[in-house]
Design a protein around this nucleic acid. Structure first.
Lengths: 154, 154
DNA sequence: CCTGAAAGAGCAGCGCC
DNA sequence: GGCGCTGCTCTTTCAGG
């Protein structure tokens, strides 16, 4: 992590928790005026340390309380088959994350749905409807013990 | 998802993509003045639809390019054992997410680290150092095919 | 539940150290 | 690098339909 001093790191840590933190607040905490804070933030955005500012919503509140992870094993593993699967799977709105993984399966999906019926519909009519699916194993989340978009900053 | 009309949903969708969207921009898109937009946003915050505003950072840039999911199986499954494990695991800064799951394992962890060495240190000196760990199976992410904090809003 | 205006707060640019 | 000033934009409030 070359190119970041302690002040940059503190700005990033603060923004990971709450991106509405004002330059004024930061300038008090970090004992600087707001100009250098402002310029550091702009630099962090420009150089790509900060990718996005987003609102995090409550799954229960917006009617998608069910969360599952789904391990997918393909039949064919040549590159065109992987690309086809990836192209198809990213289109499903239920799939909010998809990873190509090393391990006993090929892909890991994070799937957000309303209920069991919607999950089953996803599995049967969408995922399994793709060709090249060998096997899909679902892990239903019972408890979200920890969830954070904050990355560790040493 | 009772209690949300189309305008609310559009605000939430916009904010999931970019929380810096101004009430002014929204007021143009949604053909309203900024007052109702503002009041709707405040209501969505107050009622908990919007949980947080955060900055999303680039893992590579901040020096944590390696991502793994780790399935954990415990030895003992009585409630006090689960609670003990959860209490311990949330303390690890590498573990950014932890789910109690139904399936062949007990927990699924999202682990963010610098490299293999840091992962091994996590696995051997932190996770396996807890008592009650029966087995831990790692899935290393090779490609992040899709990643989004945006939830589907019907 | 909305509009429009007006005050308040924070951002962004500039000259100087 | 950082400071302080200044204009500008967006947020927030409020009177009125």
């Amino acid at each position: 992590m070359v190119g970041l001093d302690d002040i940059d790191k503190k700005i990033l840590k603060a923004f990971q928790k709450n991106s509405r933190t004002t330059t004024k607040e930061l300038s008090v905490d970090l004992k600087l005026s707001s100009t250098p804070i402002y310029e550091r933030i702009k630099r962090l955005e420009r150089e790509g340390y900060i990718k996005d500012y987003v609102a995090l919503l409550d799954r229960d509140k917006i009617g998608k309380p069910m969360l599952a992870y789904c391990n997918v094993l393909l039949k064919e593993h040549a590159k065109p088959f992987l690309e086809k699967f990836e192209k198809d799977v990213v289109k499903f709105s239920e799939v909010v994350e998809c990873y190509y993984i090393a391990g006993s399966y090929d892909y890991l999906l994070r799937v957000v749905v309303k209920d069991i019926a919607e999950y089953q519909n996803f599995l049967v009519n969408k995922l399994a409807a793709l060709d090249n699916i060998q096997n899909a194993q679902s892990m239903f989340v019972m408890t979200e013990v920890k969830w954070s978009t904050s990355l560790p900053i040493d």
